[in-house]
């Protein structure tokens, strides 16, 4: 009691916080390692730019494939990258929405977590194994279908022949890619669907809506931007995927949209993986420069996805 009575007179000057060495060192270490991440990201950009300068300024004849300059060289690759990723996205988007809805709203509550684990299991399979499976199992299995498709629907430009005899086409690669990006897309969408306000769902059901009508009215409008960001994350994955494409695709230096021929546009990442071990001089710089292009594309896609998610977080009804 006496202490409290005395204290007002004693603390005329506010007490000084003790600064401990341990605190200083520890907080400095955490700040440094946090900043290191920014440094690494910046360094990635800088090193890639430095290494790709010789390719960007190369004279005609130095770039592989007899390309006049770097942009002519990288053009078909950019097209192939985006095209393969888009195809994979077209396959994976409806599937992942379906799976996410199945796990969050349709499957019995008890097994839904187990089903989530099973889908996550797909994410644990290394890409090189997907590649092996794609070329040795899927391509062989699906090739007869391609022949049928070309014979019956060959008048549609997409399915124009001549059909690939090995099944190593861009459609096969896109199917493998789709399987690979499903887990991340499903995971994001599942989280969003689970966050849909429970009261809205119950209100819809109480008014006599069927389960699909309830999802249409209460879940999908709430989850729209989350679905968009899930799709864009999947797109980012698909753009950067390397080995599965390098193994599955039989590439050529072309720009075309034929799904089933053996002349397929290659992707940036797969091109780097296959050419890098033998590349020297300007060819090496060219590959690194194409990697820089890929880096910029995926960076833009990912930043857009994150931007949508973050903007949503602030104004959503969930919090």
């Amino acid at each position: 009691m006496t202490a409290s009575a005395e204290s007002p007179t004693k603390t005329a000057t506010p007490p000084k916080a003790v600064i401990r060495i341990g605190d200083r060192v520890f907080s400095l270490a955490t700040v440094l390692s946090g900043s290191l991440i920014l440094v690494v990201l910046a360094a990635t950009a800088v090193f890639l730019i430095v290494q790709s300068l010789p390719a960007l300024t190369a004279k005609p004849g130095q770039i592989p494939n007899d390309a006049a300059n770097f942009w002519v060289y990288v053009g078909p690759l950019v097209f192939g990258t985006v095209w393969a990723a888009l195809l994979a996205l077209i396959i994976a988007t409806p599937l992942s929405i379906g799976i996410a809805l199945f796990i969050s709203h349709y499957a019995p509550r008890r097994i839904s977590q187990l089903l989530g684990y099973i889908i996550d299991l797909l994410a644990a399979v290394p890409s090189v194994v997907f590649g092996l499976w794609g070329v040795l199992v899927l391509a062989k299995f699906i090739q007869p279908f391609y022949t049928t498709l070309v014979n019956t629907l060959g008048w549609i430009p997409l399915f124009q022949g001549p059909v690939s005899g090995t099944g190593k086409t861009i459609l096969t690669a896109a199917i493998v890619l789709a399987v690979m990006i499903l887990p991340i897309m499903t995971a994001v969408m599942r989280e969003i669907f689970l966050q849909a306000p429970r009261l809205h769902e119950e209100a819809a059901l109480a008014l006599g809506a069927t389960r699909w009508e309830m999802i249409q009215m209460a879940v999908l409008p709430f989850a729209r931007s989350g679905m968009v960001s899930g799709i864009m994350l999947g797109l980012g994955r698909a753009l950067g995927e390397t080995l599965a494409i390098a193994i599955v695709l039989s590439p050529a230096t072309v720009i075309n949209v034929f799904l089933l021929t053996s002349q397929n546009p290659n992707t940036i990442a797969a091109n780097i993986a296959t050419q890098f071990p033998e590349a020297q001089g300007v060819a090496l710089n060219t590959l690194i420069a194409s990697g820089l292009v890929l880096f910029v594309i995926t960076l833009l896609v990912n930043m857009a996805a994150r931007f949508i998610v973050n903007r949503r977080k602030a104004f959503s009804g969930a919090n």
Binding site: S35, L41, A43, T44, L48, G240, F295, T298, L299, N302
Partner: peptide, 27 residues
């Protein structure tokens, strides 16, 4: 700083693995 780190860690999760390889190689 914290906001920048959070954002760029998220962005970094999406770096294609081959670009990470190219970075280490160029370094």
């Amino acid at each position: 700083l914290a906001r920048a780190i959070t954002f760029f860690v998220d962005v970094m999760t999406g770096i294609p693995s081959i670009v990470a390889g190219l970075f280490a190689y160029s370094l």
